[in-house]
Amino acid sequence: MDATLLLTTPEQKLFSALPENLREGWTVREESTDAFETDEQLHIRAGMAELHRWPALKPLMEQIVQGKELTADQVKDVPEEALPELLFTIGARGIAMLMVALLSQAKTDEDIQAIAAFGHLRHDILETNASISYA
């Protein structure tokens, strides 16, 4: 992963408000593709999701539906292998929300690396959203 952050204009504002020591070494590039999903497309993706392949997610989702936050111990149960399925299902829109949340809480270099990672994965989804359209 290179040291490039792919951020939308509002996200760039959040990034530029971070302390300089966190920002240094990163190149910010504009995420200009705006092929974000509609509600209906996300709903269809939810129907396509095969999250039952990771049974550890089930009790976490049950807790979420009850409106309870997850604890540090519980989040260890989220398998990394489930991330591609999870991220595609919530789409570029869902990832954008995660990026905003992380940008607002970033305190370490690892946080910025994660924002960069989200940006790259979102870009792949946006590019694909734009390139496959039958409507």
């Binding site: 936050e69 997850l70 604890t71 260890k76 989220v78 990394e80 690892e110 946080d111 690396q113 990672a117």
Partner: peptide
């Protein structure tokens, strides 16, 4: 990218909750 995202989810339970 997936490793970095996985790290962020573990580090910030609120992010996983979101």
């Amino acid at each position: 990218p997936f490793r970095a995202v996985g790290w962020a989810f573990r580090k910030h339970p609120i992010l996983t909750t979101l």
